[in-house]
Design a protein around this nucleic acid. Structure first.
Lengths: 149, 149
DNA sequence: GTTCTTGCAAAGGCTTTGCAGTTCT
DNA sequence: AGAACTGCAAAGCCTTTGCAAGAAC
């Protein structure tokens, strides 16, 4: 069984709070959400940890993972796992869905959307009597920079 | 940097052989390829190992991983990593590309293709001056069986 | 006999968990 | 005070690697 959207065991009170940032104010979670929204996007947990350390010198990697699970559960962040198997995180909720063009040379991520593809995916699922809840399209290849070399 | 299609270090002679099954005949690699082609598909390394053990009671998991890398390098198998982060393998080469509908309830994989989506993906990449080499579309949701419940 | 292949055990990399101490309300 | 949050270290899981023994050519 595969869980795609992991809802963390939110503390009881957190579920009642509209901002979903937790039952209590937490400097770490706020910092991590901020790293996520102000950073370049598509960061790994380790990269997020590194960025967070600049603001909170003693924050541990476990806290980062916990906060990320939490934020994903709240819909404030989204996790996705590219072909290298290392999870990346991006802010979610306020941002539109998008697919990824991933450069296999420099590792950069380009966000892209094609409404038509989105529509066709729904059709494809329907054709198989499949009820889609989320999807993920990744195109691997060379970005314009790397292809030029 | 993200390597999507990992070409294993093939032994020198293996590269010259057309069947690409290795420089030498290997019962294990043949068995694993057979598990792959005759099995239900989308098996994890562990599942493949379990199936292989029935034929070769002493085969080790390392051999399975090595063989899988090898077969992927030869184009005889394809690896893909769904949202749970655990690699799955399927026979390749003789089979057409396809996308996956993945049931988040029972974990089943449905293979599907939509030629139009394929075309639009190329267009989408081109629009970003991106040179695609492979892509992966996964739709998560409920299969008809699970949706009915 | 040389080179490839294998099993085993150990190590690696990413992620989660247990626990005791700390913080928030 | 009570529940939530945190850092640290340990454990977990999947995968790879080192090495000595075995097999193929």
């Amino acid at each position: 069984m595969i869980i795609v959207i992991t809802m963390p065991k939110l503390p009881f009170k957190a579920r009642e709070k509209s901002d979903c940032l937790g039952a209590r104010r937490s400097t770490r979670r706020e910092a991590i959400l901020d790293v996520l929204t102000s950073g370049p996007g598509h960061l790994s947990a380790e990269e997020i940890h590194k960025a967070a350390l600049k603001r909170l010198p003693r924050i541990g990697i476990a806290t980062v993972y916990r906060a990320l699970k939490f934020l994903c559960g709240c819909g404030k962040a989204a996790e996705f796992i590219p072909a290298d198997g290392v999870a990346r995180y991006e802010p979610a909720g306020s941002r539109a869905h998008h697919d990824h063009l991933i450069c296999t040379s420099c590792g950069c991520f380009i966000e892209a959307v094609d409404p038509e593809i989105e529509r066709l995916q729904v059709r494809l699922a329907a054709r198989h009597r499949f009820k889609p809840s989320s999807h993920k399209l990744e195109i691997y290849g060379l970005c314009s920079n790397c292809a030029g070399k």
